[in-house]
Design a protein around this nucleic acid. Structure first.
Lengths: 183, 183, 183, 183
DNA sequence: TATGAATGAGTCTTCATTCAT
DNA sequence: AATGAATGAAGACTCATTCAT
């Protein structure tokens, strides 16, 4: 019964998304293996988190690829990005919280590349005249993550229907709250 | 040298905002007292977190009071709320993360009252025709928290200037990213 | 080097009999294992005491079985009981002291069953005309424990020779201090 | 409101008799004073226990004086001793348990003097031909304490009526369990 | 390779005791 | 003299990690 890393990672992500403080023991049990075996797969807790991070980065990268950020107008690309990113939202939220902890520790460079791609999308929208330019693309990127996280949480808490999520996030992010004539 | 609860709470909030896993020892040292004394003030770690929660709730309530949510048009009230809430953002972010942990435990009822006030503001805006009605006020409330948190983090990370924060949040929340005629 | 519960229990009993306040650390060292391992075997100090109690109950039950309480005349059965109980006396004394502490907590039902067996022995002796009937069997049971405990202590303190113990307890319990004709 | 030592000692004895592990805080509260004040009266926990010991010794000595151990025949003197000792039984039981803890520590010499008086009583009974001589007076002394303790406990647990106690102890101690002609 | 068993390190908590008012 | 406040020392407990089978 070869228990592959992939399986363990998936279970770990699912568990940690719910209980960010889950112990190695809980994680091992969730993955159906013993603590010792978990340690054979991942040198330690840190290593596991790092692996999860790599995994999350990869998933987010795939979501971006799937969204086709460079195609069509920026607003449409953003909508697609929101849709493809949604499934990863939980893990992302966990990893962000976790990253806060590595106070001094340098953050995985992978994030920077992903951030850059999103930032680039916002910049393109600004250059093409679709997006306002008084909000920095760096802030928009941060806000994007914030709303994705808030959305995942709202669904989890039953405050927003899963089917409404894309519209809720995209609608707010693109158009804001205020009612306006042309929309 | 009477060290009052207030002081300890403030220091604890400041520290936990940065390192959410800070030990009781670290907290005690940050407050300039011994571990034992910290335990004299707060029966245990849980009690401390609870107290912090009460404090956070109170601070947020004061922020709302100061904002005068019922006065003027809803958009202006929201702007004021963002401004008065900003100083509390860090603690709020910590408490939200922490609340996720109390899986089964019921959440302090105080939050519900505060949520209701914010939700009410959004509803008023919708009723007065200022805010769009295709986004539920519950979601808007959640999004509000998400952006406040994202903003605090962005400032902390140096991606947004503290002085730009209010405009960044309010601008995005009210108007969205998309450029439009009347703005 | 599998250290089984049995071994740990035996060492714990031996130590606690001497120093009823021994710390988990001392107990662990006495058993030749680390504190953490001790905690792996017994969830906590309470659990350890409970296990010790079960063990003590079992030992006393075996002592009773070995004594054959129902056979022969009651006085002889009592003599046998004293002899077979003696080795357990130390642990019993410790557990009694400990039980006093569980003020509110209900006492392990096992004791009641054992008490009943001893009480029954005294009652039999009374019914068969061997034991006096002006002393309740409940009191005789209590007195039995008291003398067993006093005996263990007297030996421990060097006031009574181990070889004299059975005679000392049985002689006193059965015949009392006063010299009498027929004895 | 001059809180005298006497009062504190009495309360401490009463409390410790019930909960032998009561903390200084509990003791202080039982005596109606603050922990700090308790420490002003007794240098520390040890000092308090020592004082309690002195007090217990004194009480037992008075009980012996009141019993008039040298008067009349030994059996009658013993009956009187049991009666006068009974009120002190609880504290004595506590102090014995406590003494077990001072493993190496030398035991208060006062006890020795009291033990000697009791032992002397038994010896007198043996010399006068009233008490059997096959049980050492040292053991009888120990047994006396054991039965006094068992009696206090039996009353506390509701297994023996307070009014029956003297008869129960004296009857068993003097005559034993076995029915005999001349009694 | 997989795991039950064992453990070192670190955290929380309590208690007796001291200090400053 | 009395006490609220503060603390050092010590114990219980948990967890990530290693070892031996």
């Amino acid at each position: 019964m070869a228990v592959d890393r992939e399986h363990v990672l998936k279970e770990a992500a699912a568990l940690l998304t719910r209980r960010s403080t889950a112990s190695m023991d809980e994680i091992a049990r969730a993955a159906g293996i013993s603590r010792a075996t978990l340690h054979r797969h991942f040198a330690g807790r840190d290593a596991l988190i790092r692996a999860l991070e790599e995994h999350g980065i990869e998933q987010l990268a795939q979501a971006m690829d799937a969204a086709g950020l460079d195609e069509g107008d920026a607003a449409q690309a953003l909508r697609r990005l929101i849709r493809t990113t949604e499934p990863v939202a939980g893990v992302l939220a966990f990893l962000f919280t976790e990253n806060q902890l590595f106070e001094g520790g340098e953050i995985n460079a992978g994030w920077a590349r992903l951030d850059a791609r999103i930032t680039e999308l916002f910049r393109r929208g600004q250059e093409e005249g679709d997006f306002r330019i008084d909000l920095s693309s760096a802030w928009l990127t941060e806000a994007f993550y914030g709303l994705i996280g808030a959305g995942a949480w709202a669904v989890h808490e039953g405050r927003v229907a899963r089917n409404d999520l894309n519209h809720s996030i995209a609608g707010l992010l693109l158009g804001g709250i205020r009612r306006s004539m042309e929309k």
